[in-house]
Measured scan of single mutants.
Amino acid sequence: MGFKLLSKLLVYLTASIMAIASPLAFSVDSSGEYPTVSEIPVGEVRLYQIADGVWSHIATQSFDGAVYPSNGLIVRDGDELLLIDTAWGAKNTAALLAEIEKQIGLPVTRAVSTHFHDDRVGGVDVLRAAGVATYASPSTRRLAEVEGNEIPTHSLEGLSSSGDAVRFGPVELFYPGAAHSTDNLIVYVPSASVLYGGCAIYELSRTSAGNVADADLAEWPTSIERIQQHYPEAQFVIPGHGLPGGLDLLKHTTNVVKAHTNRSVVE
């Protein structure tokens, strides 16, 4: 069995187990497998329904001669939608809004960016022009300005110390501490036991640490421990890039980060 097929099978099995364990909360999309990078042309966006009122959005972007996937989250909030992270750029984010209108038909009224990198804030200006209120932590807003990236308009308070959590509509926002970046936030959907790890969490097929220019490698494993301790009931975990899975993604990420750190020390 090929690795790609095995990865998709694991996603399907995880979703099936969740649907059985929580039949009222989960209505997993039966329309197909989780979209992969090879299936999404740059400039297009796919939506994948995880649970009743919960979707991931998947886009792709060219970077350094390669094409990478990027995940975000959409959560229903009454007759409105909360968006977590842009679709990595203005063109993708405009396509995301169009796809949401086509498939869901509810307005996106608020959006949260989970850290300051372009795959999370690139497209904020498109959201703002569409009347979406954009939010991020003060740290993310400051770092985005320093980096020359787009800056969300509103500040999220109460997320300055490791372990801080605040309720934001249908989700809980959690600051686990520094990891992929010093400002990275985690998003949890309690009604569906869905954990969105953003770039602080890796997919299972990833074996290298990737972009760690703004990471705190020493603190990252401790931050992941905080996530595990705060959300032990999480059933569906979405990484910032690639295929979702279960809580095993947290341990896998820790292993990859520690291996990278150990290699760096040896070198």
Results as ranks from 00 to 15, higher is better:
Met1Leu: 11
Phe3Ser: 04
Leu10Val: 07
Ser16Tyr: 06
Ser16Met: 05
Met18Ile: 04
Ile20Ser: 11
Ser22Gln: 05
Ser22Tyr: 04
Val28Asp: 04
Asp29Lys: 06
Ser31Gln: 03
Glu33Trp: 09
Glu33His: 06
Tyr34Phe: 04
Ser38Gly: 07
Glu39Leu: 10
Ile40Glu: 07
Val42Met: 02
Gly43His: 06
Gly43Lys: 13
Val45Ile: 13
Arg46Ser: 10
Leu47Ile: 07
Leu47Gly: 08
Gln49Lys: 05
Ile50His: 14
Ala51Met: 02
Ala51Asp: 03
Asp52His: 01
Asp52Cys: 04
Ile58Trp: 03
Ala59Leu: 05
Ser62Leu: 09
Ser62Met: 02
Asp64Pro: 15
Val67Ile: 10
Pro69Gln: 00
Ser70Thr: 04
Gly72Pro: 01
Leu73Glu: 10
Ile74Glu: 08
Val75Arg: 05
Asp77Ile: 05
Leu81Asp: 00
Leu83Val: 11
Asp85Gln: 00
Thr86Ala: 14
Gly89Arg: 09
Ala90Thr: 14
Lys91Tyr: 12
Thr93Phe: 00
Leu96Glu: 00
Leu96Trp: 00
Leu97Phe: 02
Ala98Gly: 09
Glu99Tyr: 15
Glu99Leu: 11
Ile100Pro: 00
Ile104Leu: 07
Val108Pro: 09
Val108Ala: 12
Val108Ile: 14
Thr109Val: 11
Ala111Thr: 10
Ala111Ile: 03
Val112Tyr: 01
Asp119Trp: 03
Arg120Gln: 06
Arg120Leu: 01
Val121Cys: 12
Asp125Val: 04
Val126Ile: 14
Val126Glu: 15
Arg128Tyr: 15
Ala129Cys: 10
Ala130Thr: 04
Gly131Glu: 14
Gly131Gln: 03
Thr134Gly: 12
Ala136Met: 15
Ser139Trp: 13
Arg142Phe: 01
Leu143Gly: 03
Ala144Gly: 08
Ala144His: 02
Glu147Met: 10
Glu147Gly: 05
Asn149His: 00
Asn149Glu: 02
Pro152Trp: 13
Thr153Phe: 14
Thr153Gln: 03
Thr153Ile: 01
Thr153Asp: 00
His154Gln: 00
His154Ala: 04
Leu159Thr: 10
Arg167Lys: 08
Phe168Ala: 12
Pro170Asp: 04
Glu172Pro: 01
Glu172Phe: 13
Glu172Val: 13
Phe174Pro: 00
Phe174Trp: 11
Tyr175Asn: 04
Pro176Val: 10
Pro176Arg: 01
Ala178Ser: 13
His180Ser: 00
Thr182Val: 07
Thr182Arg: 03
Asp183Ala: 08
Asp183Cys: 01
Asn184Glu: 02
Asn184Ser: 09
Leu185Thr: 14
Leu185Lys: 07
Ile186Ser: 11
Val187Arg: 01
Tyr188Trp: 12
Val189Glu: 06
Ser191Gln: 05
Ser193Gln: 12
Ser193His: 14
Val194Asp: 01
Gly197Thr: 10
Gly197Ser: 10
Ala200Pro: 05
Tyr202Ala: 13
Ser205Tyr: 02
Ala209Glu: 11
Asn211Phe: 14
Asp214Trp: 13
Asp214His: 09
Ala215Arg: 09
Ala215Pro: 12
Leu217Met: 05
Leu217Arg: 05
Ala218Leu: 05
Trp220Asn: 02
Arg226Leu: 02
Gln228Ala: 07
Gln229Pro: 07
Pro232Gly: 09
Glu233His: 10
Glu233Asp: 09
Glu233Pro: 05
Ala234Trp: 12
Ile238His: 05
Ile238Pro: 02
Pro239Lys: 04
Pro244Arg: 12
Gly246Ser: 08
Asp248Glu: 05
Asp248Leu: 09
Leu250Met: 10
Thr254Phe: 10
Val256Ile: 13
Val257Thr: 15
Val257Glu: 10
Lys258Leu: 08
Lys258Gly: 06
Lys258Met: 13
Lys258Glu: 04
Ala259Val: 05
Ala259Leu: 03
Arg263Ser: 07
Val265Lys: 02
Val266His: 08
Val266Thr: 09
Glu267Arg: 05
